[in-house]
Nucleic acid binder design. Structure first.
Lengths: 333, 333
DNA sequence: GTGAAATATGTTAGCGCTGAGATATCAAAA
DNA sequence: TTTTGATATCTCAGCGCTAACATATTTCAC
């Protein structure tokens, strides 16, 4: 019942041309007479021919693959970046090949090596935190490289994202301008999440420049989540009930904080301002839309792909694309 | 600066053995003397050799890839399935190759064909709604196939999931037992989401068996989201303020409904019961934990991979794994 | 009409690996 | 000693495609 898969040879035979001609029709490369093309296309359709990518890759020592390294799938932020990547890729014949690193540079390194085994045209990864071996592999393979989310360091090739330090700083200035004075911070595991750390630093700097400090901070030892945000705010407030504004490491945490206030009967904004980061949908649907910073995740993924595909060679100078951020005023601060 | 990538030949030369021997060491296949293995491993490490998968694939007409077809990435449910897939794959040397179909069988078909071009060992897809061409391709390629999420139809090879009809039915029985009598339904676009439709049918059946009907239903014309849930519930209640229980097509919608109640001052459960589906974290962190049905997404992905890898050949009989569901009592119904 | 350029197609040699079978080596059995 | 079978290794053809080059064929300026 199972006929063998048709190959280029079959198509060529049926269309009465050489294999090479079929190959050229498929790849749209080199001059082809219209009549020939039609015959070939017909043959392809008749046989239901699908090119064998492995063979193509091998012969051309290159592929239509883009390796994508994401730190996690549980944080909705990364699937959103992925959506941007898919959106930009839809118009092309490239396909992403995705690895999940769990925020671990060593894991990143090993996954990278198995991605490189497929001779991808480009690699998309996250942040600047790579092992030396990772950098070496990336250099030795001629692939283009995009580092996403962050632009606070020198990229290997392309960086697309925003300055988290700046974003944190902007939050600080914003809250100070709004008259808040007694600041707290609720965070999560930032050994893993370096960008959260950078925002924190920016925030602290903004406060320092105005002669202020964080009155207290409480970090949850684990990944960010709504539940972590709720519980961690509770702990912080028990210690420091007099705070008038709490900045969270991200929206997940902040939404949790909001729920805590709801249950504890704390008037959000009047008695306690809440501020997040990311601009997730969930925050904007709360009874009081969350005050936060919008990072453009979809855009980051999309632009990264577009820039990568502009040229197969790395340019002489590194490219840094700042996708920016917007303060979302919201109603919680 | 860029030395060419080392190949089997280089490793073989350095280790003083034939290429084939190196290949066997790498794949752990056939008898190898310990001394030889050591020399080869050393050479591999020295050269930083990474096997070229394209070549391997071509030569063996097979690959360590698993094609994964997901309907969407915006619904957190699918990244969660993916996590299960990655978890099960972590222990193996297989890699997933992911395509996003946007709930469109035609798109599924075209993505499938480009996945098959890589000669994957297996295909994981969602639901039973495929085009004829898709089924044919799946049959002609000898790959194993898992259809996830749903078990309400005859699978091609393996199905892993739960009966959505049953789950909907169970929700109906549960709510009736709790004394609710005036039911509404808030849904989303179910041309795309067939499983939501099946739950709806189950619910309606449970009501019918007790001589009841839905007093009203309101569907949002688009994908599910918290915002859609909030706004759609508002519309429904305007029309039918006397309802005492509303079932939502899923948790996203239900959480939105909860927020509507919060703003509109409707006492959840006392005046209006809310019921979701999925058991998402966000629902369980609400001031009142959402009453819902837990579907085991992570497990579904994980089991699918495990079953697929048990054997490279399809078994004679179809395999159906029911991952079940749990009614989560919550506090909103 | 001639030659040169442009256009269209064919020929050939691999890409790096694996599978099948051939060969070599050695211990235990005859 | 020879045979046998296991164990360890090698040889070599090819997987299906593409790159580079070779070979027509047509077009058009002069």
């Amino acid at each position: 019942m199972q006929y063998e898969m048709p190959t280029l040879t079959h198509v060529a035979r049926l269309a009465g041309v050489s294999e090479n001609t079929v190959s050229r029709v498929i790849r749209n490369k080199g001059p082809i007479a219209d009549a020939t093309r039609d015959r070939v296309v017909l043959a392809i359709e008749k046989l239901g021919y699908v090119p064998n990518r492995a063979a193509g890759s091998l012969a051309s020592s290159g592929s239509l693959l883009i390796g994508v390294l994401l730190p996690s799938l549980s944080n909705i932020v990364y699937p959103e970046v992925l959506q941007g990547i898919y959106a930009a890729l839809a118009a092309t014949s490239y396909q992403p090949m995705i690895g999940v690193t769990d925020y671990d540079p060593v894991k990143e390194q090993s996954i990278l090596s198995s991605l490189l085994a497929w001779q991808p045209a480009a690699i998309i990864t996250t942040g600047f935190d790579h092992t030396d071996a990772t950098r070496r592999m990336l250099d030795n393979s001629r692939v283009r490289v995009a580092e996403l989310m962050d632009i606070d360091a020198e990229p290997i090739d392309i960086a697309v994202g925003l300055s988290h330090h700046q974003a944190g700083y902007a939050v600080g200035r914003h809250l100070i301008a709004r008259g808040y004075r007694r600041f707290g911070y609720v965070g999560h595991d930032w050994i893993a999440d370096r960008r959260a750390r950078m925002r924190y630093d920016g925030l602290v700097q903004a406060l320092a420049e105005t002669g202020m400090t964080l009155e207290g901070e409480q970090c949850f030892d684990g990944p960010s989540s709504t539940m972590a945000g709720r519980d961690t705010l509770a702990i912080l407030l028990e210690r420091l009930p007099g705070l008038d504004a709490v900045v969270f490491s991200n929206d997940d945490m902040a939404v949790g904080g909001f729920f805590h206030c709801l249950v504890a009967g704390i008037a959000v904004r009047e008695r306690l301002a809440l501020f997040g980061f990311n601009g997730l949908d969930i925050g904007q649907v709360l009874p009081l839309p969350l005050s936060t910073v919008r990072s453009n995740r979809f855009l980051i993924g999309k632009i990264a792909v577009e820039k990568l595909l502009e040229s197969p060679e790395r340019a002489l100078d590194k490219l840094v694309v700042d996708t920016g951020y917007d303060i979302v005023e919201g109603a919680t601060a």
